[in-house]
Simulated scan of single mutants.
Amino acid sequence: MSSCSSTSRRRCPGSPLLASLLENDDILSEVLLRLPPAPSSLPHVSLVCKRWRRLVSDRVFLRRFRAHHRRNAPRLGFFTHESSGKPTFNPTMDPPDRLPCERFSLELERGCNIVSCRHGLVLILNRARRYLLVWDPVTGDVIRVAFPPNFGRVGGLFFTHGSVLRAVGNVCDGDQIPFLVALVVNDQGGARAFACLYSSVTGLWGDIISTACACPSEIPIFSPSALIGSSLYWMLGCSGPVGILEFDLDRQRLAVIDVPPGILAFRMFHHRVMAAEGGGLGFLCLSGYNAELWTRKKGSDGVARWVLGRTVELDKLLSLKQKGGCQPFMFGFAEEDNVSFFATGDGVSMVQLESMQFKKPFEFLVIGNYHSFSSVYTAGLGIDNRRDGPQQLNNA
C-alpha cells in the first residue's frame, strides 16, 4: 500500500474511484502538472506525503511542469541594473510566493547591461567587448555568444540593441528550451539599420540584413523591444526623427514604420511600442498625466494608419496630485499582460492598462528600465537547488 493511500481516502470521502485513480503515479502526475505555476504550488503539495514529494521532485516532471506553464508563467518581479553593472532582482508577488531579492543574482564584468527580458530569459550585452549573455535565472544557466563578425563597432555613434525570445514549440535539450537572439544596430549617422538573428539550436548567426532609415535616426539604448506576433519592434529617434524599426523574424526583413501623428521627437520614458488592445501593433504615449493608447489599423483603402483608442488619466487612477507633484515616467512594460511601470513622486506603480487595475506603489529604486521577469520557479525540488548564491558566468 502506498504511503498516501489513507490520505487520499480521507480527502476523497465517497469517491473510491477517484482515490483509486490517484493511486496511479502517472495519473497523479498529470493532475499535479496542472497546478497553478505559482512558486509555492509544488513545495506545498510536496508536504502531503513522501510519494507526492517524490513525484514533484522528479526532473522529468519539473521539466514538463515548466514547459506546460511557460506561456502563462507568473511575473516573479523585475530586474534593474545598478551603476556597478550588477543586475538586481526586485520581487513583486505577495507571500507565500514572494521570492527574496537575493534569489537571482549574477556576477558580471563592467560594461554589461540588461537589454531584454522575455520568456524567462534575460539578455545582457557587453557592447565594448562585443559579446552577449543569455541568462536563465531559474536554472542558473548562462550562455555566452560573441557578436557576429563585422556587426557594428565600438563607439558612441553605434547603438547596438538586442532582444531574446524562446523558439517556437516546447522542444527541449535536457533542461534547455531553444531560444533566439536578435541584434540590431545603426551605422554612423543612423542612415541604415542592420539586424542579425542567432539560434541556440544551430549555434550560428544568420545573415545580416539591413534597411534604410528615411531620415537618419538611431536606436535609443534605454528603449527595450516589443514582441508582437512574429515581429520585434524598437523605437528609433535617439538624436533624429522618431520612428519604429520592425524586424520580421519569419520573413527575415527589416522595415521602418512611422509613429502616431504629433510625435516629432523621442522622449525617453514617455514612448513605448506595445501590443494593441485586441492585437496588432500599438503605441503608448505618455503626455503629462495622460497615457494615450494608439492602434495601427488598415483602412478601407488598405493603408495602415494610427488611430487613438483610449486615453488613461493617470492622475485620477493613481490619485496623483498635479500641483507641485512629479509627473509620471514609464520605466517598464510587461508584454505578457500589458502592465506598465509608472514612476511618480509616490513611488512606482504597476498599472494593467486594459482592466485599469494597479498595485500600490513600491519604493522608487533607480532611474532606468524595469525589466519585467516572468518564469516558472520550483524552489528546492531538484531543478532549482543551485540558487543559494550569486551565479557565475560559464563561457560557451
Rank of each mutant, 00 (worst) to 15 (best):
M1C: 00
S3P: 01
C4H: 11
S6D: 10
T7W: 07
T7P: 00
R10F: 14
G14N: 06
A19N: 02
A19D: 07
L22H: 00
I27R: 00
S29Y: 03
L32F: 13
L32C: 08
P37H: 01
S41F: 04
L42E: 01
C49S: 15
C49Q: 07
V56G: 08
D58R: 10
R59H: 09
V60C: 00
V60D: 00
V60K: 01
R64F: 06
R66P: 00
A67R: 03
H69Q: 01
H69Y: 03
H69S: 00
P74G: 06
R75W: 05
T80P: 01
G85P: 09
G85D: 09
K86S: 15
K86L: 15
T88L: 15
P91S: 02
P91W: 00
M93S: 03
C101F: 02
R103T: 11
E107K: 07
L108A: 05
G111F: 14
V115I: 12
S116C: 15
S116V: 13
H119M: 01
L123T: 05
N126M: 14
R127F: 06
Y131P: 01
Y131F: 15
D136G: 02
P137C: 01
P137F: 03
V138W: 07
V138K: 04
I143E: 05
V145Q: 12
P148W: 02
N150A: 12
R153Q: 12
G155Q: 07
G155H: 09
G155K: 06
G162P: 10
V164K: 10
A167G: 12
V168N: 06
V168S: 13
V171R: 11
D175F: 09
L180G: 00
G189H: 14
G190K: 00
A191D: 09
R192K: 14
A193F: 09
L204Q: 12
D207T: 12
I208P: 08
I208Y: 08
I208Q: 11
T211N: 08
P216L: 02
P224K: 03
L227T: 03
L232V: 13
M235H: 09
C238I: 08
S239V: 05
V242I: 15
G243D: 12
E246L: 09
E246R: 11
R253M: 10
I257E: 07
I263H: 05
M268V: 05
F269P: 10
F269E: 11
H270M: 11
R272H: 14
A276Q: 07
A276V: 04
L281S: 07
G282A: 04
C285A: 11
L286H: 06
L286C: 04
G288A: 04
T295G: 01
G299H: 06
G302K: 06
V303C: 07
R305C: 08
T311N: 10
V312L: 15
L320D: 11
L320C: 12
K321E: 11
Q322R: 14
P328V: 00
F333I: 07
D346G: 02
S349I: 13
M356K: 14
M356G: 08
F358C: 10
P361E: 03
E363M: 14
F364W: 13
G368L: 08
N369E: 13
Y370F: 11
H371T: 05
T378K: 08
A379R: 09
